[in-house]
Design a protein around this nucleic acid. Sequence first.
RNA 1: GGCGGCGUACCCAAGUGGCUAAGGGAGCAGUCUGCAAAACUGCCAUUCAGCGGUUCAAAUCCGCUCGCCGCCUCCA
Length: 478
Amino acid sequence: MPIKVFNTLTGGKEDFIPLEKGKVRMYVCGPTVYDLSHIGHARSAVSFDVVYRYLRYSGYDVVYTRNYTDIDDKIINRANKDGVNWKDLAERYIEAYNEDMAALFVEKPTHTPRATETIKEMIDLIGTLIKKGYAYVMDGDVFYSVRKFVGYGKLSGKNIEELESGARVAVDENKDDPLDFALWKKSKANEPSWESPWGQGRPGWHIECSAMCLEKLGETLDIHGGGKDLIFPHHENEIAQSETATGKPFVRYWLHNGFVNIEKEKMSKSLGNILNIRDALKAHTPESVRLFLLSSHYRSPIDYSGDSLKEAEAKAERFYRTVERMEEEWPEILKKKAAAGVVKKRMRPIIEAMDDDFNTAGAIGIIFEEVAGANRMMDGAKKDKLTEELPVVRAVFKEASKFLGVFSSTHEEYFAKRKKMTGLPAKAVERLIKEREEARKKKDFKRADEIRDELKRQGIILEDTDEGTKWTGTSFHF
RNA sequence: GGCGGCGUACCCAAGUGGCUAAGGGAGCAGUCUGCAAAACUGCCAUUCAGCGGUUCAAAUCCGCUCGCCGCCUCCA
């Protein structure tokens, strides 16, 4: 059964068949590095991380490229405002981005080129477009003639006439046509610039992706991804540039992820509700943030709120609690290896969900059926059944975590993170627990309950078990 | 105005032609517990925004109506 993907180009689900058998070339638009990355960047990166992981899991050899836009108006403006060098600024935010991604279990793509490493290729590409008559030089700027490209609008479903009627009147217009976009921008004094046949300048935004795709992946890509907002004009322009230059189809399957809203509102500078990844991670475990992002289909809009993250944390906790119980109550059984055939059979519904346009929400739902099943078995404590089944469940968790990237921590790692999120240092908590234990021994339940209540106010939940009292932190919320 | 999407229980959410409409959270009752917590068990949508149509059969396809959202400008 082939994997089905939703292709923006055709507006429907299609069987995924790469150009070259067994090999996938994929590209995703990365961040413009002028500030800390927000939860929307996280969604795009996590969504396509799952695509990358799952295609490899399915047996494909995947070459995945994700760029950094490290030269852009926003970077220059921000650097000027902060009084720092634009290159240092970009460098700093590339590092921050990588830290955030690592925290969210996002794997490093095969290639992560920077726009500024590909200037020569961009200049060559622009030269080709001019030579073919699709681009023109205007006083040091170079523009692409949108009207010349017959297929313009095929990705976004727009037509040129409507675009023109809706086009705003640009100030200081150098272009032949308002629809034309810049391939190369003449630099002003004190701006970063590169030498080109058209004078000192820097590349436009769209050309960098075309150049990097061509350089790292070739003329035709299997998958090109990004946020829904990039469909127009960014991806539309990439198609125009690339297909004009190569004469070949640029991308076989266009994949676009939906937005993250904050408390039902779109994240935007003007509303001041941009949520940085690191702020999100101060209040929630990375496991829960990633689980939140994967608990809805990647194309749907999702709403980030205190409640939605609380639910995700509850899910993560339920999962890791079950794993903890499996490993602590039945360690000798878990050492047994599950039969590969049985595991494969149990993975089938999960695989079916994933094959259907990477339905992570469906796959996670099935994992929680396994979680309930495992708990039921352990409650029943029928040794024969457990010996047969528990290793299978454990193996299913491990397999699924390979492509979901959640459920891949150990329960120790997860609960250690939770414990760090409380209002008290671990030592103080342990001391109070000890005091409570002594009170309990003396049957002073009033004092014992006082301590438990006090800890609860600090975000700490106690659990009395046969092996003593355990504790965990509940996450704080903004 | 143009293009696209969505509306499934109290909340989140999967399911897009045919077994009892996944899963999580919240809630209620029970087992366990000093009491809790966790886990488990049971309950929690005869129905999928509304209306009409196609079909042996629809949450799923078609039409209309209502409501919400995104893109059309830098944006994940």
